[in-house]
Amino acid sequence: MTAGAAALDVDGLSVYLGGATVVRGISLRVDRGATVGLLGRNGAGKTTTLRAVMGLVPVCAGRVTLLGEEVEGEPAHWRARRGVGYAPEDRRMISALTVEDNLWLPANACGLPHQAAAQRLAWIFEILPELEPLRKRWAASLSGGQQKIVALGRALMAGQELLLLDEPFQGLAPALARRYAEALSQLRERDRQVAILISESNPALLADVAQKTYTIERGEIVTAT
């Protein structure tokens, strides 16, 4: 890790997927401790950008730098071990496991010592207290909204440096969306180091949480505010 480096630096990123270039030469930067929004309509390339940062889709041009280190060609699980947490839009719980097992998976997979992982989990339960009573439930038995919260908790487990949240408010009832945003600001208060990149299609929802917003259209960044 290089001191003073950004949590995430994307430079000229292009992704070719399913016969089309979905992301074209995108550059963006997320400083440590910053919350950055990626705003765009459906199909604009938000999800692909996040997935490329996570290492889930092959990149055809450009560089992704995590905490000052270029991670070209690195598989996703190595990036997770660098402290990157990812919450996909469609939640994707492991339904054969309980909520608690889902939360433990990234800690075990990234080789966190048991003590540290248990502390981390307790800390996550402080920020997301609604998770605690769900611990023993099967992930498949939760409502969609509850699964979103679990997905955030799971991303926090590995994501000590950078969180990638793909449309976290999508499909949430207004009350739950407010709760989610509140949880994010609580996270901010307690942890001033973690960087967050949120993709969203509704600018109003981003306005409260993000200090900086990139707008993406047809795979290109059009504005940065």
């Binding site: 996570m54 598989p75 699980h77 997770a80 071990r81 492991i94 997979a109 080789g111 799971r154 590995a158």
Partner: peptide, 9 residues
Amino acid sequence: EVSSAMGIP
């Protein structure tokens, strides 16, 4: 896919 994003090899 999600497994690898969680750090599982």
